[in-house]
Amino acid sequence: MNLKDITIGQFFPGDSIVHRMDGRFKLVLSFLFIIILFTADNFRALFIPCAFILMAYTACEISYVFIFKNMRPIMPILIFTGIINLFFVGGNEVLWDLGFVQIYLEGVRTCVFVIIRIVALITGMSIVTYTTSPITLTDSIESLLSPLKKLNFPAHELAMMMTIALRFIPTLVEETDKIMSAQKARGASLDTGGIAKRAKALIPVLIPLFISAFKRASELATAMECRCYRGGEGRTKMRQLKSSKIDYLVSVLMLCTLGMVILVNIA
């Protein structure tokens, strides 16, 4: 099983400028990045956020190799959108005529454009998770959502749920591995046969997995109760979120990027 090889959403501890940025800023700026990416409506404009990503990867001291590693799990999406655009975007100039379908120059263009956009989106958003620990990330989300607490929105509970979920992903992956090995040792074939057969073969893995997950959940709930956990009210944090000069500088830089993209769009 290669669940462990997926790098999207993983955290790489480090001490670069980007690592030291305030998590809240990183989250808000990643949304700004999406806006920039979707504002760009031609190749020249799209070049600007792409250059920005390369700069950001250099700044957070993460190898460009990860840009390619991220591509693997989203490959099906890329191929699917690519093919849809290639075949179904109409235009004036026919490049190839395959009889049942024509491929236009515009189609090829849109196809490449959309693929670059998706890749830029994934690699750009990954920077946040690469450089922010899951705990800081959920703290930041809680902090950003806390104005909504006045409207009875359970911001703290939501953040706590995310923290717990993130904490248990590696545990569950390990557990799945173990249970799969145990059932394989009893002759279960988990990786052969058609879809229906494979789905049925998963039952011996899923049932023990669910049982242990529920057991873990109830144990955790008891443990939290024993420590008098009662939600976010009046709770203080060991690590305070602090913004610094870098955060404001990067924000200004991003706004400038947005400005540039708009200018190139118009030009």
Partner: peptide
């Protein structure tokens, strides 16, 4: 037979 085999 794995460790904690009752989990299977």
């Amino acid at each position: 037979v794995f460790q904690y085999s009752e989990h299977q």
